[in-house]
């Protein structure tokens, strides 16, 4: 049966200026959150392999909780739940960045742990035998090598987090999906607009993939 549907290019391109306004928010939440998530990931990833159980246990608990619950629930919890405790509303943008930071931080902790543990123990033995302290051995020998190995999984996480920000339309941040929804509410051109929304996500993630591939190649070339 013919549904009588034809793709309305006018509607698709007409929505673009409106959708593009969402991109800065998408990028700000993604990369703001990822930057904080990276710091969290380094700290908690390293704590999770610490010999001291009192340091290791809380880090592991954090990682398990934030990997084991949906990011949608996390952001709803932060945006709607936390104000009851902190006694005031939480800005939607802040809630979004915090959710990406905490969620990606948990995954990045595991990336950091894996990266550090993948370095042969002979490397740290060589550093220690030369008289370097444990800290010097870690930061000048283990970490640079681990970081290089962490680039592919970090890129992966960045792409996942960028896509995760689409869920934050539920708390009303004017990111890409939210912009699309608002636009559709007046034009009823869901197919065309979501098609364009998807294309814009793809443009962002493909650009990132390309950049990461260049970084990775440079990294390998300099080893």
């Amino acid at each position: 049966m013919d549904s009588g549907f034809t793709f309305d290019w006018g509607a698709a391109f007409g929505s673009l200026p409106y959708l593009i306004k969402g991109i800065p928010y998408t990028l700000l939440i993604s990369f703001g959150g990822l930057a904080i998530g990276f710091v969290i990931g380094i700290i908690f990833g390293l704590l999770s392999i610490n010999k001291n159980r009192l340091l290791r246990w809380p880090a592991t608990a954090y990682i398990e909780v934030f990997r084991g619950t949906p990011i949608l629930v996390q952001v709803l919890f932060i945006f709607y739940g936390l104000p009851d405790i902190v006694g005031g509303p939480i800005n939607a943008l802040t809630a979004g960045i915090a959710a990406i930071a905490l969620n990606s931080g948990a995954y990045i902790s595991e990336v950091v742990r894996g990266g550090v543990q993948s370095i042969d123990s002979g490397q740290s033995e060589a550093g220690l035998s030369l008289g370097l302290t444990r800290n010097q051995t870690f930061w000048s020998i283990i970490w640079p090598q681990a970081l290089r190995r962490m680039i592919p999984p970090l890129g992966n996480q960045a792409i996942v987090s960028i896509k995760d920000t689409s869920l934050f339309s539920v708390i009303g941040v004017g990111e890409l999906v939210r912009q699309g929804q608002v636009y559709i509410a007046t034009t009823f051109t869901a197919f065309e607009v979501y098609f364009m929304v998807a294309l814009l996500y793809l443009a962002i993630t493909l650009t990132l993939s390309l950049l990461l591939r260049i970084v990775e190649r440079r990294g390998i070339a300099s080893t």
Partner: peptide
């Protein structure tokens, strides 16, 4: 430990050079 390691060099079977 640190004082000893400053004075004692070691060469390993697998070289353990720093690849970076």
């Amino acid at each position: 430990l640190q004082n000893i390691r400053k004075e004692v060099g070691m060469v390993f079977q697998q070289f353990n050079l720093f690849p970076h």
